[in-house]
Design a protein around this nucleic acid. Structure first.
Lengths: 137, 137
DNA sequence: CTCCCTGCAAAGTGTTTGCATAGTA
DNA sequence: TACTATGCAAACACTTTGCAGGGAG
């Protein structure tokens, strides 16, 4: 489906700016960008787009569950597509962020059991409604 | 072990400020604070401590693997003890952050299978060195 | 005595906000 | 036409940095 169709489907007004943001991620699936990096990319084809507009578009697309943002070590959070549920792997050396399928174990071990990536840390963060809040309401 | 002993063990100079930061978390195990919230708490017994010093102490203690910082939705990251590996649960309603043991499933389901917390989202983030970086070095 | 740490305040960085204008439905 | 989004720039919130003075080893 086109970016325009997806926006319409989610009840978002179709503007060139939102389309450009969504198209970037649709055409660069698996890529992750900071807000500023995305702004730079989009500016090449759309020089007048404002930085603030990129932030607003990202926010709108996250609300519509089309994009996700991943907190990064520094230099701004990363944004990426959220078509299917997945986990993330960040390389300590190059800082690249990889999407992993929910069953990520095979990606980290070769069939013979040799490691093909060294995992230093696994952060698991759950969000929802806790027991005490659920009892009140 | 005392805060002083832990600091010394990790090769950090023992200053009243570092001791105060570490002691806060040792005496409030399971609590998580923003840098600013922690600063306010410590100020009660240590009025002259500077906000910047709290940030530096937090950074030092994280480098020493004594503390961890968890990216929060807004209002600043949260800091907490890192004595043992654990996961996290954030309540959407009250924003409270709970530490979970690595086997968190029992905490989220009663023995009869009834849910005792509604989990909306699970973020799994791995960090380490990826395949291509490992090949270069 | 040396080096590191602190307090203070200014600067930085990433993000949000307000408002007049332009564009979508 | 009515209402929402954009561009611009200022404001914001959190964090980092620089420097002179003070404290730990």
């Amino acid at each position: 489906m086109t970016a325009e169709g997806i926006l319409r489907e989610r009840g978002l007004r179709v503007t060139p700016q939102r389309r450009a943001v969504l198209q970037y991620f649709l055409f660069n699936e698996g890529d992750h960008q900071t807000a500023d990096g995305l702004w730079n990319h989009i500016q090449q084809a759309f020089p007048e787009i404002a930085r603030g507009t990129v932030y607003k578009a990202l926010h709108d697309l996250i609300d519509a569950r089309l994009l996700e943002h991943i907190p990064a070590e520094s230099g701004g959070d990363l944004y990426g597509l959220r078509l299917t549920p997945h986990h993330h792997f960040i390389c300590d050396q190059c800082g690249h962020l990889y999407d992993l399928s929910p069953s990520y174990q095979p990606l980290l071990e070769a069939p013979n059991g040799d490691p093909i990536a060294v995992v230093r840390e696994i952060d698991v963060l759950l969000r929802g409604v806790c027991r005490s809040c659920a009892q009140i309401h």
